[in-house]
Amino acid sequence: MSDSATVADHNPALQHHFADMEQQQQAATMGMWVFLITEIMFFGGMFLAYMVYRYMYYAAFVAGSQAMDFWYGTINTIVLICSSLTMALAVRASQVGQRKALVALLIVTMLFGCAFMGIKAIEYTGHWRDHQFPGASFHFEGPDPQHIEIFFSLYWAMTGFHALHMLIGIVVVGFITFYAWRGRYGPDYHNPVENVGLYWHFVDIVWIYLYPLLYLISHKHTG
């Protein structure tokens, strides 16, 4: 701790092993970006499987996509885009030190996140009721139910892992909101808010890809 004492106005948030706030902030940001790269690779595996099977069983994918509820998907997309906006505004509020605005915006972001999860839950229940969950009880009236089951396997896996990320996001934003309410973040120290923001935007972007891939497959091709 000897050298941190030499820094005249040293920030209480500065950890002992960093020389200064700038180094700490750069390290945190970089760490978050590296983490997001791992996340891209994680989802990438599923996107690859999606691409392969969509190429192999295009007609089945069209049929599966038409069984999706267009409006649930679209409304959820809008909800998430709005949550990204409030998240971006929250990051800005933390940078300029508006504590109340920060807390409010984070809460709104969480509410949007919960709305997304709620709609998703309704949608999942519908699919479950309609035997659109892969396995023994899977049932689909169509020309190629077997490969439509693969579509639904991918649908559940991709949206399921996305929903898990949303859930983690909501919980983390919850923690951040608590600390923001306690006044921990300000112009000098707002790393955690920025990093959670990055994570939140990443999860949104995954959805921005999932939405057209799962809900909006064109069927002109076959016509």
Binding site: M56, Y57, A59, A60, P143, D144, Q146, H147
Partner: peptide, 10 residues
């Protein structure tokens, strides 16, 4: 494949 899964490649 066409015997086992006729709809796959119509």
């Amino acid at each position: 494949e066409s015997i086992l899964n006729p709809a796959a490649k119509l």
